[in-house]
Write a protein that binds this DNA or RNA. Structure first.
Lengths: 172, 172
DNA sequence: CAAAATTGCTTTAAGCCTAAAATGATTTCC
DNA sequence: GGAAATCATTTTAGGCTTAAAGCAATTTTG
């Protein structure tokens, strides 16, 4: 019985627009599971950063971006990389400059642009946190074999590409 | 050269505590990719919910939980399911009761407990949104084959279990 | 039974986040 | 050269989020 109805559905979808709504329950379940995994790990990391270093996850993330860019980044760059809104970055940077972790200066060539860098203090603190952070992540993924990790990387790359394509179709 | 140092490292890790910090760059990259995928999809869903239905993602998520529980849930249940703080749920529920989507009543048997349900309006609106939501998710995952989906489900289940185990070790 | 602990929820303070509008600087294009 | 468009950032308004403290109601325990 299920096999038969499947066949009919497939035939329909190969010929013409299907009236019966397609079943996408599997994709939905996949999305919820993906979200659960991320929320779980993110919450754990957030809590540990607060406990151990009294720092928030967004601040850590921002410093991580800057650590990879010794020559600094513009706010727009950061915003794109972190996939958050522009206004969000403004506030985060404000607080991190205030606390002495970031250095912010206006570009010489374009007075619209702000370039931000880690200060010596900021870099030192970030490195200290990052080292520990890496062990937390390793522990959280500890039960995955190297093969699992590779396979997940591959499938998530495919997922990212698929999602980007779909998102781009609406925002060209 | 890299092979030799790998051997040394492996020997070390099989015999005694290693002085040299282990390399967990792969797990770190995996985590970042997982986070990217989730952020990407979540942002897309958030934007569409706002555009099409003028509703926020947290509200939609809360209604989704209640739609699966016709007899209602307590705030604690919701909080656990959604993996958010208690105080967060209080505010969300307040606004959804206000807008007529939720019904909230104090339990007969335990006056600490609040039971919330979808109203007729809430359920109708949610169903309408959920139907469309499902097609968005399907589109975002469209390039994955059924086999990819199955494999991702499996690996994410393993990831979730691993993360839960690791998280539980620190919060028993 | 009454003190102590737990449970369910709310409040508070601080910060995060978005979308949209506003501001100011730079380019583009007649 | 100057109007128009674009770009980088900030501001605004509203909502989300957390951790921690607080308040009742209930359960546990001596």
């Amino acid at each position: 019985m299920p096999a038969a109805s499947d066949c009919i559905k497939m035939l329909d979808s190969e010929t013409k627009a299907v009236e019966t709504p397609e079943d996408h329950a599997e994709e939905l379940r996949l999305w919820l599971r993906l979200l659960t995994c991320t929320t779980l790990i993110e919450g754990e990391v957030r809590g540990r950063l607060r406990q151990r270093f009294d720092v928030t996850l967004p601040r850590f993330d921002l410093m991580a971006q800057l650590d990879k860019a010794p020559d600094g980044m513009t706010l727009s760059d950061v915003s794109k990389r972190m996939m958050v809104s522009n206004g969000n970055v403004t506030g985060l940077v404000e607080r991190l400059v205030e606390s002495g972790h970031l250095d912010r200066r206006t570009s010489e060539t374009d007075r619209r642009v702000q370039v931000i860098r880690l200060t010596k203090l900021g870099r030192a603190e970030f490195r200290r946190m990052a080292a520990e952070h890496e062990t937390w992540i390793a522990a959280l993924f500890a039960d995955l074999t190297p093969k699992d990790v590779r396979e997940l990387m591959r499938l998530l790359a495919k997922t990212k590409a698929s999602a980007q394509k779909s998102a781009a179709r609406r925002r060209p």
